[in-house]
Design a protein around this nucleic acid. Sequence first.
DNA 1: TGCCAGGGCGCCG
DNA 2: CGGCGCCATGGC
Length: 298
Amino acid sequence: MAYIQNESFFPVPEHLRTFFDGAAEIPCVTVGGCGSFSAAKTFDCGQAFRFDPVNDVTFAGTAFGCRIAVEQTVPGTIHLYNVSREQFELRWRHYLALDEDYDAIDRFLIDAMPNERDRAVMTAAVEAGRGIRILRQDPFETLISFIVSQNNNIPRIKKIIRALCETYGENGSFPTPEALADAGVDNLFALRTGFRAKYIHDAACRVASGEINLDEILSCDDYNVCDAALRTIRGVGPKVSACVLLYGFGKTEAFPVDVWIKKSLERHFPDGFDVKSLGKYAGIAQQYLFYYERYING
DNA sequence: TGCCAGGGCGCCG
DNA sequence: CGGCGCCATGGC
């Protein structure tokens, strides 16, 4: 289990001075016991769109209205900038999935394979993706972000989300459902969202009106009920719904299927792949297989 | 210059 | 329900 090694106020280091906008000093924590956690893999695998690399070992971005930086110079330990001990316990331990035993999950995924051949493939995928954490992001932000992601590329997804935040967010944070609902389709279209403008607006209106209750989805244990609720939103199909439930609602049984996963399953599991047998951790296997196929094998 | 992007919808057979 | 053209835009 991750634990705080040190907590103090740090002068903002040179490489983060721009990001923290000239602040003199900020609260920082050093967290040990992070296991295989990899900041680079976690923030660079296409699940979060508001984090960017600062250097080889540092990623900085905004989540839940806070600007933070994650730095990792040695395995098993990370440094969090602009995070106090209290904030770490309230938010960031959970956000970074440092409260999950990924070593045990890795073993479970390998053991869940039905034969030696499949076990070898899963072992290779786990080793390739080891260190990826499924972040626990804000549900509404994740919903809008993955609506924006459809038929889009990551640089442009990031650009559109930045425009949404700058135009309709309160000092840098992600816009509320009400703000996007009030904006209207035309103004959302003006931010170069393209055909997704009406989808974003529909999602915002349904959440703002209470027709879709994100807190209920968060606490609901029936995956099919959650999936069905999200898919009543225009522009939310099987892939977007699964991504939102996985990255924004912590439903780790979600298994988003895209072209990379299709290729991976066809190539490595020609006799079939039983998602159900992976139960609650199917989504983590998906992330490993995606990473393996996209960045290692691809 | 074209192809394509972590898709989904509407329509067609 | 499976396949296919279309949707807006811009990154590469």
